[in-house]
Amino acid sequence: MNTLINVARYHLAKRVDYLVLPWVWLAFAFTVDLVIFAMIPVGHHSVLTAHGIVQVQNTSPRDAGGLGAIVAIYFVLGIMSVAKSLPFALALGVSRRSYYAGTAVLAVTLAVGYGLVITALQAIERATNGWGVETHIFRVPYILDGPWYQTWLTMSVALTLLFAYGMWFGIIYRRWSLIGSIAFSAAQVTVLVTAALLITWSHSWRNTGHFFTALSAVGLTGILAALGAALLAGGYATVRRIAV
């Protein structure tokens, strides 16, 4: 256990990367979203046409994409946690297992903390009618639009998933560099295409579509959690076999 904490603290030596940078980046994306949505009028507005002034119903969605910033940076943190830091930990007599477990513990802990902050921001967004410009930066229709505890859970799971994905990429990159990363990406695409082909051949698109439309937000969170666990297991199986 002590070793796991030491591994987590090892990563946190770069506390700017783990604790500051994601929020600075999110704040930037947030500001950009606010500026954009302040420019797009809400509801009816007047437009001068050849027929005189007409009232136009503005139907464009009010969903911004700023939340993606923090998700993306969490993926990058996952990559860096291995690609940059693994070899030195091994030199200090840390086993791959402890390194991986310690890194994962840090990732989950931070994800839960981040999730909580996002949940709070979502509550503020609701209370202020979308930051005064009726935008949804911390609300995503369907998946991130439920009660606060659901937002917290889903956000934590989603961030952990991205970190695990990044770690696996980082491990592949550490051992097989760019070629390995490309092959790894190609393998993932192959899996997806194969799945699509299988669904097509078995005429199950209708069922597949039905499965996802019937799925609740909690159900989808469960699927994300299962996927995250699979990615963690895949990364672990890889790191145990590589020499760095």
Binding site: G93, S95, S98
Partner: peptide, 11 residues
């Protein structure tokens, strides 16, 4: 992958 042994080494 043996922490008990590895932690007694530095490389």
């Amino acid at each position: 992958e043996n922490d008990a042994v590895l932690r007694r080494m530095v490389f």
